[in-house]
Design a protein around this nucleic acid. Structure first.
Lengths: 128, 128
DNA sequence: CTACGGGCTGGAGTGCGGTTCAGGTCAAGC
DNA sequence: GCTTGACCTGAACCGCACTCCAGCCCGTAG
């Protein structure tokens, strides 16, 4: 498939795909007449990259992972450790967000209270 | 308190505190001999800003919130809505991260399997 | 009174993760 | 053969959120 199709399937812009290739996240595909022709497996790899990115991993770290992957089996344990570290970070981040959500809920409840009080004031003013 | 102390208490760098003041996130404090002198309440406000930031809110949106806060009660409902929207985003983000965590767990389990197979191969090789 | 640690300003610089642009080339349909 | 739309390259540019810097001032301990 050509780059436009891959862009459509992955949701990454054409520019981003070329950029990812440039920095070594995506293997340079075969070319026909200068144009990139991707293997369908590329979609799976890019989806994985998207997931790593969603966890907050930097492109640099993803590049390190991609590099190890390219080196084959010998790097398997290292890659696993990378994923384990990232997994731990994700759990931490979830905890942090959960705490923030609780704080927001508290603040929102507070605002509701304040608004209720103001409505009451309005009623009183009306009754005067 | 002076800016150094506030920096220590909030964990934000002195430069960041001045930057936040410049962009309107923090009220300009009183000055004595040109130096900023903060009220202890500043810590609470900054901690709240940190929480908003942790939720992924942009400084620009935080500025909008700060501006409304400065305008007083009339903006209360708008501020509540902002927090409610942010709360929804946080919940979404937690869902996304949870899904990523699951994917990572799956991948990690996969790596364990691969490693186990390789150990087996090593044993076989040893027995030859 | 002097040294020194902390604070001040305005503005330039940084790192990240793309995005845009100029100026082309390629290929599929008419 | 020609048009049209997709694709190509290298390099410049962008927004965000800081971070650093030069050159200055203030205040307090010795």
């Amino acid at each position: 498939m050509k780059i436009g199709k891959l862009s459509e399937l992955t949701g990454l812009s054409i520019d981003t795909l070329r950029y990812y290739e440039k920095i070594g996240l995506i293997d340079p595909p075969f070319r026909k007449g200068g144009q990139r022709l991707y293997d369908p497996d590329a979609v799976r790899w890019i989806d994985f990259l998207k997931a790593l990115k969603a966890t907050g991993m930097s492109l640099d770290d993803m590049k390190r992972y991609a590099l190890m992957r390219a080196k084959g089996n010998a790097t398997s344990a290292n890659r696993r450790v990378m994923l384990e570290n990232q997994h731990a970070l994700v759990l931490e981040r979830i905890e942090e967000l959960t705490a923030c959500a609780a704080l927001l809920e508290y603040k929102i409840a507070n605002y509701h209270e304040i608004e209720a009080r103001h409505e009451l004031d309005d009623k009183k003013r009306y009754l005067k």
